[in-house]
């Protein structure tokens, strides 16, 4: 009996020891040197693995940061300047301040503005609806409303609004990772400069049809009339293919374009209410 016990213990010990020795040498031989700073940088990142930086996840971004000579081309849109500042601190590089951005869906084709002309009954994704036809309304450019952007968003920054038919971005939660920009088959989503108090003046339309066609499909379509372009003192507005576009980097939020837009395609958000616009709106409706 006791012999068996001794044998067992001895055998197991020998196996254990030899395995340990082998492992020791193998570990030595095949050791891969990894910069410890990669772990450190990764630790300071948000860890969302959203891909908004253009790399496959936070680890890949951390590796890129460690390798890079400066941080000019690298930015974590989720963490923003704070995160990039701490990354710069770890790596001993100079932090580059980037302006915060926010996503915006350039379509205001809500149910009120854009009457439905048919009903879609297929797989409920924008990508498939877009591959079938132009959409449930006469506007071939606008939002389809099945929420591919909502599915793509990792940060719950997009809400589907059944009452509107068009999703809304929640500015406070949006980190401008760009996942929704890629997901939208109609290319409606734009990353714009983030202004204080989330104020914005935007052309909420992508319709490139001629004025009449656009207007017929949607009461708030941009008809490319060019009034806003003339009104803008900062050259922020350009008209191309019957469509106005406001460059958020040049825009000074003066809101003059909002007043002149005949279809209310240009919208302002998060400004204190003003009286003039209300009157303007009434005039419009009586004229109709």
């Amino acid at each position: 009996m006791s012999v068996t016990v001794i044998y067992t213990i001895a055998t197991l010990s020998i196996i254990g020891t030899s395995a340990a020795v082998i492992l020791f040498f193998v570990a030595r031989k095949f050791k891969v040197y990894e910069d410890p700073r990669i772990d450190e940088v990764e630790g300071s990142l948000p860890g969302a693995n959203c891909g908004g930086c253009g790399y496959a996840g936070c680890r890949a971004f951390a590796e890129a940061c460690v390798k890079a000579a400066d941080l000019n081309d690298l930015n974590c849109p989720v963490g923003g300047n704070d995160t990039m500042g701490s990354v710069a601190g770890i790596l001993g590089l100079e932090a580059v301040k980037k302006e915060a951005r926010v996503a915006f869906i350039r379509c205001n084709g809500t149910c009120d503005h854009r009457p439905k002309t048919n009903i879609f009954d297929g797989a409920d994704t924008c990508a498939i609806a877009a591959s079938v036809y132009s959409g449930e309304t006469d506007c071939q450019w606008g939002c389809l409303g099945y929420g591919d952007c909502f599915t793509a968003c990792e940060f719950d920054a997009i809400e589907l609004r059944a009452d509107l038919g068009v999703p809304k971005i929640i500015d406070d939660k949006c980190v401008a990772c760009g996942a929704c920009v890629d997901a939208c088959p109609k290319n409606l989503i734009e990353l714009r400069k983030k202004f204080p108090k989330d104020r914005k003046v935007v052309v909420a339309c992508r319709n490139q049809d001629k004025g009449g066609v656009a207007r017929k499909a949607c009461s708030t379509a941009c008809i490319g009339c060019g009034k806003c372009e003339k009104e803008c003192k900062f050259d922020a507005i350009t008209i191309e293919n019957n469509l106005a576009f406001i460059d958020s980097d040049k825009c000074k939020l003066c809101r003059k374009c909002v007043s002149v837009c005949p279809t209310n395609a240009i919208t302002e958000e998060n400004f204190p209410p003003r009286k003039i616009k209300e009157e303007k709106k009434e005039e419009c409706s009586t004229a109709k």
């Binding site: 439905k116 048919n118 009903i119 009954d121 297929g122 079938v132």
Partner: peptide
Amino acid sequence: MSNLLTVSPS
């Protein structure tokens, strides 16, 4: 609303 046509893929 009711007389709108349905569109779906084949």
